[in-house]
């Protein structure tokens, strides 16, 4: 456990700090996409409120895809991943820690930025609370499921588009439940069922995906 903390977690955080400019890019992308909608569709408060949750969630999915390649690419190219896999530590735990830190440094700022986005799109307080909860439960799901595909495509040159093609269909259920939760909140209806479903998907992903990621990384080493 100490080895995982001192050798993997601290290293990931140090690397993230070195690459902070790269981490800001997906956030700027998200901010810009969300800003473009009121300009393109017109600033009618009702329209914006209607499309707001969907816009924020689609932007979140796209921006997370943008930053996801970072997860294993560099470590794969410079050989750090080989050394990690030969350290004798369980590869699934290494993968889980890498995904968790990636989520923390890429989504943490997004959550901090979210009130601003909610104001842009004229969301009510109830809607914002629901949105924040779906983002809290949903974005780690994006990272854990996405990491499987990143592991598979890490050896491929320019795997970015392939990654998007593989992952966007998988994220559709999440998008549906997340936006439906915020819609329910807008109508003052309970949205716990949707949250529960997202939570269940997240728990399943946390339990299963580290093993799938480990396997995909092994395949990529072949």
């Amino acid at each position: 456990m100490r080895a995982l903390y001192r050798g993997v977690l601290k290293r990931e955080l140090a690397l993230a700090f070195q690459h902070r400019a790269e981490l800001v890019q997906p956030l700027m992308f998200m901010l810009m996409v969300v800003t473009l909608f009121p300009l393109g569709i017109g600033p009618g408060p009702e329209t914006l409120q209607r499309i707001g949750p969907g816009v924020i969630w689609i932007a979140a999915i796209l921006s997370s895809l943008l930053g996801m390649e970072r997860l294993f690419r560099e470590d794969f190219q410079d050989g750090s991943l080989e050394q990690l896999m030969l350290s004798g530590l369980p590869v699934s735990l290494i993968a889980a820690i890498k995904v968790f830190t990636h989520w923390l440094v890429s989504t943490g700022p997004l959550l901090i930025m979210s009130p601003l986005l909610a104001m842009f799109l004229n969301l009510t307080l109830d809607m914002y609370v629901a949105l924040l909860l779906t983002l809290l439960l949903g974005t780690p799901l994006l990272s854990f499921v996405g990491a499987i595909a990143v592991g598979l495509t890490v050896g491929v040159q320019r795997g970015g588009i392939l990654l998007a093609l593989l992952l966007i269909p998988v994220f559709i259920p999440l998008l549906i439940f997340a936006t439906s939760a915020v819609d329910s909140a807008a109508l003052q209806l309970p949205y716990l069922p949707q949250l529960a479903i997202i939570g269940a998907m997240l728990l399943l992903a946390i339990a299963v995906s580290p093993f799938a990621i480990a396997y995909s990384l092994r395949v990529s080493q072949n």
Partner: peptide, 25 residues
């Protein structure tokens, strides 16, 4: 095992790279 790839993260210093490597191993 030392392969063609050095296994060193270019953004980190030699000291950091080896410190993390030792912790991992």
């Amino acid at each position: 095992y030392l392969g063609h790839k050095s296994g060193l993260s270019s953004a980190l210093s030699a000291l950091d790279n080896l410190t993390y490597w030792c912790a991992q191993h």
